[in-house]
Simulated scan of single mutants.
Amino acid sequence: MTVRWDIFCTVVDNFGDIGVTWRLARQLVAEHQCAVRLWVDDLRAFERLCPQIDITLCEQWQQGVQVCHWPESWPSTEAADVVIAAFACQLPSAYMDAMAERQTTPLWMNLDYLSAEDWVIGCHGLPSVKYKHVQKYFFFPGFREGTGGLLREAGLLERRRQFQQDAQAQRIFLEALGVQRTPGARLISLFAYENAGLASWFDAMVADPHASHVLIPEGRVLGDVQRWLGIDGLKAGAVHQRGALTVQVLPFVRQDQYDQLLWCCDFNAVRGEDSFVRAQWAGRPLLWHIYQQEEDVHLEKLEAFLRLYTHGLSEPAQKAISGLWRSWNAGQDMAEHWKMVDQQQQELLEHAQAWCLEQASRPDLAAALVKFYVNWL
């Protein structure tokens, strides 16, 4: 019989939470033949990732997934075989009662945020709280053995390899976004939160002898770009050039298009969790803008990942990429660190490719979740 899954998502950070759960839901359907309901409280944010969504409907089917609006007044609904509370969201009390009333107790998991911290391995898969007789379990994505792995669809890296070896396919894709790539220019994608360090980074690229073309999907960082340019009303399609730097605003793209954008670029600046993982699958050097948390807890997560990611790099390359990440996440001057990264670009590229293959040698997150359920049975 088909295993029924309910995934609950509250949209906290615009696209990160829904981005992860939407990818997971589709993969469970396509690769593991699960029946998936995805409960989302903000269909408007979802619509940006999946333009086919009708935000007026309480229930609809998209790419094999039953998408349901998570209402304030919870309807009478039978609980699924597997229940995922994404990122510690609180399930409706009526649904928790429905879990407890099932003849066969469901598997209830909290799919937590991605982290490279050491303690994650010790907590992954452990029981958490109970509701009546229904036990909840921790499930942590991660970068090492003993965690749940990373989201990665079947054949993803082969599709990426073929695309990156096909100059014409890249040109056609970029032209569809209105991008005319300058021959010899370094292509950079920029998807970030607001950041005071952006002006110094752009200034460094303006004076750089190596031309750069920065592609910026519509998002929160546009306010900083506008201030740097000294203009208002920056929208998709805008192109501005200063010195060796060309800045271009792109429309917000679907997830599959965003993957291709990352694959086209020589360097990817990303934010949050979903784009962070996709940039790693791109096999290109990257810059992560981690989501800021109270009391700077996020900086501990940043350092934990840097320790893991930079292992094996030469000291100059390690110093360059770590300094760039720390400056970016502190909103500090980027110029010197960017110059150092440029000097180490070949080693950083080879390292990014090796890191990608290392991560791909482990089971992906969807497969790990399915295996956890099978073992739990």
Rank of each mutant, 00 (worst) to 15 (best):
T77Y: 07
T77C: 06
E78H: 03
E78A: 10
A79C: 14
A79G: 15
A79R: 03
A80D: 03
A80T: 03
D81I: 04
D81H: 11
V82S: 01
V82E: 00
V83F: 02
V83A: 04
A85N: 04
A85Q: 07
A86G: 09
A86M: 11
A88K: 10
Q90I: 12
A94M: 12
Y95F: 14
M96R: 13
M96D: 08
M99I: 01
E101Q: 15
E101R: 12
E101Y: 03
R102L: 10
R102M: 12
R102W: 14
R102T: 14
R102S: 10
Q103E: 14
Q103L: 13
T105I: 13
L107F: 07
W108K: 13
M109N: 05
M109T: 01
N110V: 05
L111Q: 07
D112H: 04
D112C: 08
D112G: 04
Y113Q: 05
A116W: 07
E117V: 04
E117G: 04
W119C: 03
V120Q: 06
G122K: 13
H124E: 02
G125P: 06
G125S: 08
G125A: 09
P127R: 08
S128E: 03
V129H: 14
K130R: 15
K130C: 07
K130Y: 15
H133W: 07
H133V: 14
H133T: 14
Q135N: 09
Q135V: 14
K136F: 07
Y137A: 06
G142N: 01
R144H: 09
E145H: 07
G146M: 07
G146K: 10
T147D: 14
G149A: 12
G149F: 01
G155Q: 11
L157V: 04
R161W: 08
Q165Y: 00
Q170R: 05
F173G: 08
F173V: 09
L174Q: 00
L174H: 01
E175P: 01
G178S: 11
V179Q: 02
R181E: 00
R186D: 06
R186H: 09
R186I: 11
L187K: 04
L187Y: 12
L187D: 08
I188K: 00
S189E: 04
F191L: 13
A192N: 12
N195V: 07
